[in-house]
Each structure stands twice: as structure tokens, then as C-alpha cells.
Design a protein around this nucleic acid. Sequence first.
DNA 1: AAGTCTTATATGGCATAGCGATATATTATT
DNA 2: AATAATATATCGCTATGCCATATAAGACTT
Lengths: 117, 117
Amino acid sequence: MPYKTSQMLDRELKKGSAELLILSLVEDQPRHGYDIGSLIEQRSKGALRFNVASLYPLLYRLEKRGWIQGRWVEKAGQRRRRYYRLTAEGKKVLAAQRDSWREFVEAINRITGLEHA
Amino acid sequence: MPYKTSQMLDRELKKGSAELLILSLVEDQPRHGYDIGSLIEQRSKGALRFNVASLYPLLYRLEKRGWIQGRWVEKAGQRRRRYYRLTAEGKKVLAAQRDSWREFVEAINRITGLEHA
DNA sequence: AAGTCTTATATGGCATAGCGATATATTATT
DNA sequence: AATAATATATCGCTATGCCATATAAGACTT
């Protein structure tokens, strides 16, 4: 696998939090970019917001890596949308990233004295 | 349209996780850079490691902002060390960053479905 | 019909954070 | 004498995220 699993702040982890969000959101059903951006804002109650200039390039990267797969959908009465679904490899990556995230949060909490948080 | 009170991943948060670590570690007692780096590695059980090429510049930034204050300490039998202590302003920032961190983690967990993990 | 809002995707250019690599200097260990 | 560990420092690179801007189409307002 081209992506190492244990690096500083896991290297992947900084990106990881952003990737984790997207991979999670397309886990159960395919979603398009704008939908993903809106969901992140809604579900975080406005605490997190994804700028489109980060979001779309990230989607392209994830697709290029084969973790998600997009397809154009055109319907009458709406603008064309690109729906992304999670691939088999994406599922594995998502599972690994969830573990990484958990470990990361625990480590930070342990060090900063927030372990009960 | 309500103005967004928080940037994407809060802008402060990406830096935040790194800054939070350092500010937390110098909260109770002054510490020098190498010590901070070692503590992060130890207490995270190796999960987190801070490269010196990130750590030292970050210390300089934090000092420049007035959140920590460093002073050189020279003792016989050891190399010179620069000990950093948390300033009054640093304390406020630390408190705010702890809140931010908690909010961030909750938001990610909510979105990624890790709340009952 | 015109104007604006919301949806939806796209990208150039900039700022900055983190890191590999490398450097220096002192003390401890082999 | 050689190597390791401690301790600080910085160059140059890459990646990430953002602002600003662009395009395009439907929905709503006047």
C-alpha cells in the first residue's frame, strides 16, 4: 500500500480529518460534492465548514486514489451533479482512518489532560 | 445569512492540535523544546511524534505571539536549553483551544458516526 | 423580463504548516 | 576513538486550505 500508516500526527491524519469526513458521508449512499459540503456544515451545527476550493480538489484526489468513484447524473430540473460512492478499497481506508482518528484523539486527550472529554 | 463564526476545520484547529499540545505541556511547568518533543512521543505511546523542523519553529511562533515565554538556562554538565513557560495570555488561549478541540472532536464524531465508538 | 438567490462544479494563485535532510554543539556511553 | 543521546537550528520541498473568481442552471421575487 502506497500510504504508510504510522507517521507524525500520522501525516495522513491532518488530511485524515478531512478525508474521514468525506469517506464517512459517502459510506451509506452516493453523494455529490455540494451535498457533502452542506452536510458537514449542518451536522456539525456550523462548527465545521468546508470551502469548495478545498472540497472539490479533495474529491478529485480521493477518486484518483481509487477510494471513491464518481459518476455524472443529469436530471431534468436540476444542474448536473457528480455522485461519489465509496469503493471497496475506500471502505478499508475508511476503517483504518477511523482507527487512526480514535487513536489520535486519545493521544491528544491524554497529553493535554482532556481524557474524559 | 449568518456570518460563519468558524472557518473550515476552524483554521486554528489544524494548527490548534499542535499548539494545544505544546501549550498544555508547558502549563504546569516550564519545559524546553526537546523535552516537549519527547513527552509528546512518550505520552502518546509513539502515536504522535513531532519533527523538530516543525517543533522549534512552532515554539518561536508561539513566543512571538506572546503565548509562551522562553529563557535560556545553562547548567554544568548539560547543553544549554531554552525553557518556555505559559504566559497569562497563553493561559487564555489554551482554555479557548481546549474548548475548540472538544467541539471539533464532537463535530467529527457526529458526522462520521463515531459517537458510540 | 429582469434581478437575485440557491444550487453545483471548477480553478488560479497565495499563504503556511509539516517534514526530510542536514548542521552544529555538548555530554554520555561503548 | 567512535557512537549515541541530548539539544537547538534551518533550508527547501510538498501538500493543504483558502480567497477570489468563474461558469451554469433552476427557483423565487419584483
